[in-house]
């Protein structure tokens, strides 16, 4: 078993109205930041996971996304598998 560092990035699904992103975009514009396109606000979920292989770690993290971490109706997710921060390997 190896300990992997997992990052799950959850973002509003494309085409779904994201009022929070819109509000942040409006705030950036009102501060004078120009050239900002569409803004989206999501969340980052970070954890370590014991697994036999990187492929297994990825598969299990994706299952977690489908069951709990993301809502497929409104959100997309992306899983990144790496070594945990601070690990020697």
């Amino acid at each position: 078993m190896t300990e992997y560092g997992i990052e799950v990035r959850v973002t509003p699904r494309r085409g779904i109205l994201d009022p929070q992103g819109k509000a942040v975009g409006g705030a950036l514009a009102s501060l004078g930041f120009t050239g900002v396109g569409e803004v989206h606000v999501g969340r980052l979920i970070v954890f370590t996971l014991q697994a036999d292989s990187e492929a297994q770690a990825r598969e299990r993290a994706q299952a977690m996304c489908r069951h709990l971490l993301a809502n497929p109706v409104t959100e997309d997710f992306a899983v990144t598998v790496g070594a945990p921060a601070g690990s020697a390997a």
Partner: peptide
């Protein structure tokens, strides 16, 4: 109920925030 899959769809942040 939506999160449990007993009803379809989802409830999102109010449009007005």
């Amino acid at each position: 109920l939506c999160e449990a899959g007993l009803l379809p769809g989802a409830l999102m942040r109010n449009r007005t925030l």
